[in-house]
């Protein structure tokens, strides 16, 4: 009986304590800076090195480059860049290896959609996803000496 009484005491005490419910849909949850949300892609910074596509554990990044339209400049520029969020696991490895921080994480995480097709995000969408971009993109695990 004593054990039961103690339990009743605990629940009664909890009755008046502060509640820990988030007001989520009403108030957005502020994620810490390091939060790994949906990627933001900056095509101007991309050097088409394919590192992100290669490191991706689920092969969700497809990209292609084209010759630089400005004949003065060498190298290639990005043509298409798609991330399939059906299989992306937001593991942060693509941003970890990117030598120019062309692909970075944001703190946005709302991806729910009515159709699977909508989860296939292209270059334009990723570029426009430019709010709450992560400030600290600590590339500590990245291979040293990548393209500068």
């Amino acid at each position: 009986m004593i054990g039961m009484m103690k339990g009743l005491g605990v629940t009664l005490k909890t009755l008046g304590t502060r509640k820990s419910t988030y007001k989520y849909p009403d108030e957005p949850i502020v994620m810490p800076d390091r939060f790994r949300g949906i990627q933001h892609f900056d095509p101007d910074k991309c050097i088409v090195c394919f590192q992100c596509a290669r490191i991706c554990p689920t092969q969700c990044i497809t990209m292609s480059g084209k010759p630089n339209p400005d004949p003065e400049k060498k190298g290639r520029v990005i043509d298409t860049y798609d991330i399939n969020f059906e299989i992306c696991i937001l593991c942060d490895l693509c941003t970890e290896v990117c030598p120019t921080e062309a692909i970075v994480m944001t703190n946005n995480f709302e991806l729910a959609a009515y159709s699977r097709d909508e989860l296939f995000k292209d270059r334009v969408w990723l570029q426009e996803n430019n709010t709450n971009v992560r400030k600290d993109n600590n590339n500590i695990g990245a291979p040293k000496g990548g393209a500068k």
Binding site: L15, R18, K19, S20
Partner: peptide, 10 residues
Amino acid sequence: KIIGWMQFRK
């Protein structure tokens, strides 16, 4: 409500 309050919920 009561069970919620007793479980840190609203």
